[in-house]
Every structure is written in C-alpha cells, then in structure tokens.
Design a protein around this nucleic acid. Structure first.
Lengths: 156, 156
DNA sequence: GAGCGAGTCATTCTTTTGGGTGATTTTATG
DNA sequence: CATAAAATCACCCAAAAGAATGACTCGCTC
C-alpha cells in the first residue's frame, strides 16, 4: 500500500500543477470552465479506473483455491514386496525366527512336506515348528494361524 | 456492459447538472475554481475507482488460481471393509456363489465342521464345495486355495 | 418332459495335519 | 564352563482334510 500512496500523491501533485497551468493558459477561452471540468473529470476518472484495477489486481493472486485431490494408489503398484514383520508382536508372542519362517511358507500354501524340503529339514521338525507357532498364536488350524498372523502384522 | 454504460451516462449527467449548479452557486466565493476542481476530481476519482473495481471483479473469478494438490493415499487406508469379490474372475474360473462363500469361511480359518454348522449343511457338502473350488483354483490344499483366492481378488 | 447346472449328501479310502511326549544338538550368553 | 533358548528329529495316535465316486433334489431352459 505504500507504493500506491506514493503514486497517488505523485499523480495528484502533477494534476494540481496541470490545473494551475491550464488555469492561466485557457482562462481567456470561451467555456473554459466546462473544458476545465471535463478535463479534470476525464483525468481523474482515468486515474480512478486505473487505481481501481490496480487495487484489485493484488487480490487475484490471493484468490487461489487449493483443491486437495486424493489419488488412490493401488496397493500392489507401490512398494511391491518390502514387507517386514512386526518384530514387536513377534517378541511379545515369543515367536522365534524359524517359526515365523515356517509360518510364512504355511501361508504360501505349502504342505509340511514341501516346507521341509525347502528348508532342508525333516517333516517332523516342521510339524513341531508349526505346533509351537500355532500354540503361540492361539490357532488350532493352519488357516487360522495364517489369518491371525496377517492380523498381527507378522505376515504380508 | 450495457448496464455499466447506462450507469456511467446517468452519473455523468448528474455531474454535469451539479457542475452547472455549483457554477452559479459558488461563483462569488473565493477560490471557487480550486474547490470546484477538487470536487470534480474527488467525485470522478471515486467513480473511476468504483468503476475499476467493478470492471475487474468479474475477471478475478476467472483468474482464480486452482492449485490441485494430489495426495497419495494408500488403498488399504480407506474403505476398510466394503470388499466385493472380482465377479469376472469368478465367472472365468466357473466358481459358484456357494463355493466362494465356503472359500471365504475357509480363509477365515474355520474347519469344515464349523463351516458346515454356520451354513446349516453337512460336513460332506462342505467337503464337496471345497474340492470343487480347489480344483477350479488349481489348489491342492486349503491354504493354497486361500492364497490363490486373494491373488485373484476373490477374497479380501 | 428331457437336459443341465447348482446344491446337497453319503461312503470309502488315503493323506495331511495336529497333539503329546521325549530326546539330541546347536547356539548364545552370562 | 554352565545354562538356557532354539532348533532339530522321532514315534504314536487321533482328527481333519482331501480324492473319488455315486446319487438325489431343485429350478431353469429348450
């Protein structure tokens, strides 16, 4: 607003000077008063319009509408795999690393025999791991264990 | 713009009349010319400002800056439950409504006996539904069927 | 009314899973 | 080193799950 006041004052001063000048310049001319008034009117009208435009231009920038657009990003489309199990939950339940590993393979749909083959251990070992993991998860069946595991953030 | 021209003309006419009036009214007063000029200047400046504001007001809306802020939202974070199975996949695989229903309960960690009780049918019926669903899904075990079902968008 | 798909149920048999118990071997950890 | 936790394996038994087959009922359509 300081700049506006300055410009306004400047132009005002110039007009005052112009008024003084025209006063003696066209004093002898017929209808000088009407011409003078019309001149002043046109000048100030122009000034006013310019000022009015000027004053409102600043607000245009402020008038910005922020539209927050929520974009759904498919779960598979980003961070495809990087899953890390909830270690806290794991410790709380006392689930060992091996048990969680077996649990993940169970969730993958493998049979005890297949899991045993993948981990190079006997099927009996897998059974014990399962039994302990199921017990800690409070699950009676492997499908239930998988369900609980996902709920608890232990499985992807 | 027609309305503007009308208002402008009207006010212009009024001012001309005011000019004529003041011309004879304050003609004898000292410095009447300066007062007269100042009056006209102030009036027309005001009119100009008003007009300027008026003229640009319409454009402000047009010049409104719309900032679209796109926010990434994880798909799982919203609409937690409203899950609807992929009917297309279901039809492609030829999985019936009942089979899908049983499948969902299998995924929920229930035994065949429990599912039978929930659906008021015999355990053998559930076994049949499972067998057919597993066959259509190419699964040998229920855990595998659940896994496939989730991959295909049949299960939440 | 014949045919068909979906749902229902049963029977028999095999495989898998789960519970329980016990034992041995690694692997940390104080 | 002693000790505890974790991992490994074995054996037995019961329950659950799965495979294969056949049959019955509906509701619909040609």
């Amino acid at each position: 607003m300081k700049r506006h006041a300055l410009i306004f004052g400047l132009i005002g001063g110039l007009l005052i000077a112009a008024l003084q000048y025209t006063q003696y310049r066209f004093v002898a001319v017929e209808h000088s008063l009407e011409i003078y008034g019309a001149l002043v009117a046109v000048l100030f009208a122009a000034l006013g319009i310019w000022l009015g435009v000027r004053l409102t231009r600043g607000r245009e920038i402020l008038r910005e509408t922020v539209v927050v657009k929520e974009v759904l990003v498919p779960a598979e489309a980003r961070a495809p795999d990087p899953f890390s199990p909830d270690r806290t939950q794991q410790k709380v339940l006392g689930i060992t690393e091996r048990e969680l590993e077996v649990l993940a393979l169970v969730a993958g749909g493998f049979s005890n025999r297949e899991i045993a083959a993948q981990l190079f251990v006997s099927e009996n070992t897998i059974k014990t791991h399962c039994a302990r993991a199921f017990d800690k998860l409070g699950a009676a069946r492997r499908t239930q264990a998988v369900q609980r595991g996902k709920e608890l953030g232990l499985l992807p």
